[in-house]
Simulated assay, not measured.
Amino acid sequence: MTDRAPHTRETTRQLQDDLHHLSQTIEELVNATADDSRHNVKELRERAEQRLRETRERLEARGERAYREARDSVTQQADACDRYVHDNPWTSIGIGAAVGVVVGMLIGRR
């Protein structure tokens, strides 16, 4: 868990930077629309569209990476659980029975 903390902070920082750049470009576009200069508006609009595309691509890539990492982590945990159950079948049966008794008692109280 501690190994992921620096990666999460870095990803968060990159996301903040991307959104900051995008908002700056949009602010410039809004300010430029006050001018009558059509060339200036067109140039800023193109820059805003480009930054929006880049930000969207980065966010999609980060979302896919986060999904893959979560999927891999869950798979590893499931494999570890499976190995434990195969290595310690009687302990696993005991744990399952104990959990069943506790759940049964909780349900029976209602």
Score class of each variant (00 low, 15 high):
Ser37Gly: 07
Val41Lys: 14
Leu15Val: 13
Gln76Val: 08
Ser37Phe: 00
Asn31Ser: 14
Ser37Arg: 15
Gln50Trp: 12
Glu49Tyr: 12
Leu22Tyr: 07
Thr91Phe: 06
Val99Gln: 13
Thr75Asn: 03
Glu43Cys: 02
Val30Ser: 09
Asp36Lys: 15
Val85Asn: 00
Leu29Gln: 02
Thr75Trp: 02
Glu54Ala: 13
Gly100Tyr: 14
Glu27Asn: 15
Pro6Ala: 05
Asp3Val: 15
Val99Phe: 04
Thr75Ala: 06
Pro6Met: 10
Leu44Asp: 02
Asp87Gln: 07
Ile26Glu: 05
Glu10Thr: 12
Leu106Ile: 13
Gln76Asp: 05
Ser92Asn: 03
Arg47Pro: 00
Gly108Val: 04
Gly96Ala: 15
Gln50Ser: 14
Pro89Gly: 03
Asp72Arg: 11
Pro89Glu: 02
Glu54Ile: 13
Thr11Cys: 02
Gln24Asn: 14
Lys42Cys: 05
Gly63Thr: 09
Arg47Lys: 05
Gln14Lys: 07
Gln50Thr: 13
Ser37Asp: 10
Asp79Val: 10
Asp79Glu: 03
Thr33Phe: 10
Val30Ile: 05
Gly63Gln: 04
Arg51Ser: 02
Tyr67Val: 08
Ala98Glu: 01
Thr75His: 09
Gln14Leu: 11
Leu22Cys: 06
Ala48Trp: 02
Val101Ile: 11
Arg110Lys: 14
Arg45Phe: 05
Leu106Asn: 11
His20Met: 15
Asp82Glu: 14
Glu46Asp: 09
His7Ile: 15
Thr8Gln: 14
Val41Arg: 11
Gly104Asn: 04
Leu59Asp: 00
Asp35Phe: 02
Ala32Thr: 06
Leu59Asn: 02
Arg38Tyr: 01
Ala34Glu: 11
Asn40Pro: 00
Thr11Asn: 08
Ala32Lys: 06
